[in-house]
Design a protein around this nucleic acid. Structure first.
Lengths: 123, 123
DNA sequence: TTCGTTGCAAACATTTTGCAGTTTC
DNA sequence: GAAACTGCAAAATGTTTGCAACGAA
């Protein structure tokens, strides 16, 4: 499962992982997928990216980077790390007395694919 | 409900809003709370902040600003707008062909209150 | 034998929805 | 009277959990 999450760039949901692995392990159960995803998160091998349309999404890349989330199709795309974020992160800790441990920068909008579809529909 | 969300700084969940309003409107139902929260979101009068511990949280402040989320108690605290984020946002649109509409910057860690509790417990 | 893992089904929590009744304009 | 809004209960959804069976060390 870890390998699958590292191979794909689609930031899958638990259900996606389940369906994907079901092909190779026909009697895999959804409960096991959730259990293992939680397990991997606890060990820091994968990370939760946040819920899109009510479904939590996972990321096999734990190195700091940002995400773009398409509000139309729910696609999540990796973006390079947002460097100024780090400075801001430190400032927050000092100013507010928080123990800031990490930060995430999320851009929302419409992805290229959905924009193209929209253009096609107008022809 | 809009007034309540604008008054509080706690970025409440639907359930919090329900319990809070139940005092004044004893036969308010949870379904109505959800319906109205969605309604207000659609009209852009409030915004969703993301789910914490499986519960969506709402914010009566829609002006751009960032959030700190305490991983211990789930508190959400407003932070000033993260200005460099805007430039990054524009760059993303140009580079990837996305129609970037908004961005959010989230800092995670442990809030002051939880840090203090932790310190107290050690005495 | 002990520990960790699994499939299955049941349980759980949050959110949405259908319906009938009520209010508002 | 049409449109919008409500309480209620049922449903839908995503996720977690208890349990018995299986596996490896």
């Amino acid at each position: 499962m870890l390998a699958l999450l590292r191979q794909t760039t689609c930031h899958p949901s638990a259900d996606w992982v389940y369906r994907e692995m079901k092909a190779e392990y026909p009697d895999l159960s959804l409960g096991t997928v959730y259990r293992n995803l939680n397990h991997l998160c606890e060990r820091g091998l994968i990370q939760r990216v946040g819920a899109v349309n009510g479904q939590e999404r996972y990321d096999g890349v734990v190195a700091p980077h940002s995400h773009f989330i398409c509000k139309r199709c729910g696609a999540i795309v990796d973006l390079p790390e947002h460097a100024p974020g780090r400075d801001y992160l430190d400032a927050v800790g000092v100013q507010y007395g928080f123990q800031a441990e990490g930060c995430e920068f999320i851009v929302r909008g419409v992805c290229r694919g959905c924009l193209d579809e929209q253009a096609d529909a107008q022809i």
